[in-house]
Design a protein around this nucleic acid. Structure first.
Lengths: 236, 236
DNA sequence: TCAAAAGTGTTACAGTTACACCCATGT
DNA sequence: ACATGGGTGTAACTGTAACACTTTTGA
């Protein structure tokens, strides 16, 4: 039994895969392997199959491209202009993925002709993918302002200057390092390691790692009309 | 020309329509007019047509039910478990609508057997609609903490005690009225009217109205690692 | 006149910002 | 020895929370 007189449509998933290499934000793009727009740069995408939810499809497709599982992956928005794909109507569900470039670089599958592009130097993208990238960055800025998601972009061990550069890059601003480190450390989210990263200075900067206990629990938001201690868990 | 070897699927829109009557939050439900689950309570929904985006579909369907246009309507999340609808696979894109019950009550179309239910006394809903309602409330709490969206639920003119009750209801808390009014008024978002609402006290409470100039611009968020004056417009 | 809700001010505290110098090390 | 980036403390300020009494008026 089926619903009658309704038209069915292709549903695709497209992922904006964001990375940070310690200095710059990058996005992973592929050269599309089939018409239309064959060979043009594109977000990683694919069609949702019969037996999977769209979340599952996004994870499956991400794994095909990068070999990665258990990556931060969040539904962004549905893009559905009837003529966004010239071949036939495709409703696209965009996802944002945050991954640690360094750790996983070797796993990127070359079969897909995937390449990291500097965020500031993206090539032209097919269809409405540039709009998707814009929306993804807006969302990332928004969430990063209140949630510790940017840690997803960092390796196991990272330094405070790296962390600060990541926030400065995303918000395109300079932050006072004294205030920054005080705020970050006051969350008790970080554990100081014994060793230092000497790759970018002579003195070296201490490594820190995430305190997994507190992460995703300890971090909360501030708000406006409601007294602060009334906000418990505003998960989003 | 078409993409080959891909299966097409029905795409629907379901809207969680939230209202506030001055005392309680309510949700607008309909009795589903067709099988399966005919006569059961359901969110307002419908299938996306060939020539419209999903945003357009959501607006169209909302207008069919309520007669309302230009209502606050926001994409919430895609619900896509393959078996969420027993008849055939349907991918549902959930929307949240915020409407002023009082102003539009007369426009609600009775043909649809629509009824407002107290949020605290919802009936059983079909499919995964209860999950959608839960997600909608979470989103509403989240956004309301940082954005002035709850004003969408109020009539043109409203009182501070009403506004406060709305925030208290959503967050299930009590707020000090002195602090609340100081904070709210300090945003310069409200204009004090000359007349009072005497419906709930002898003294009467002054009406206020939104200063449309400032609304949607003046209201900003606070954040954590980034100095406050670095946050310009974190639209979401 | 009294009950019920509206309206208003002050003080203590906490969090945020602005700001400048010393430290460690490789060359 | 010096250049480079890493690390730290304090004081002024701003925003938030806690708190209680007076006002208005219909019944």
């Amino acid at each position: 039994m089926k619903y009658s007189n309704q038209s069915r449509v292709l549903v695709a998933v497209d992922s904006i895969i964001i990375g940070f290499d310690g200095f710059d934000y990058k996005i992973l793009l592929i050269q599309r392997g089939f018409a239309p727009e064959k060979e043009k740069w594109s977000l990683m995408g694919g069609f949702v199959q019969n037996n999977e939810s769209v979340d599952e499809a996004a994870n499956r497709i991400l794994k095909q491209l990068t070999g990665l599982e258990d990556v931060y992956l969040e539904q962004l928005h549905v893009f559905s202009e009837p003529d966004r794909d010239p071949i036939e109507r495709v409703i696209a569900i965009a996802y944002v993925a945050l991954i640690d470039i360094q750790k996983y670089q070797q796993q990127i599958n070359d079969d897909f002709h995937a390449r990291w592009f500097l965020l500031k130097e993206l090539p032209k993208l097919i269809f409405d993918h540039e709009e998707m990238v814009r929306a993804a960055l807006e969302r990332l800025r928004y969430k990063a302002a209140f949630h510790p998601i940017l840690f997803e972009l960092l390796p196991e061990k990272f330094t405070l200057p790296q962390l600060q550069a990541m926030y400065e890059g995303l918000f395109d601003t300079k932050i006072d390092k004294r205030n920054f480190s005080r705020k970050v450390l006051s969350t008790n989210l970080l554990k100081k390691e014994k060793d230092k990263d000497k790759s970018s200075s002579k003195k070296g900067a201490f490594f820190y790692s995430l305190d997994e206990q507190n992460y995703k629990e300890n971090f909360q938001s501030i708000l406006n009309f409601i007294p602060k201690n009334e906000i418990q868990l505003l998960n989003e």
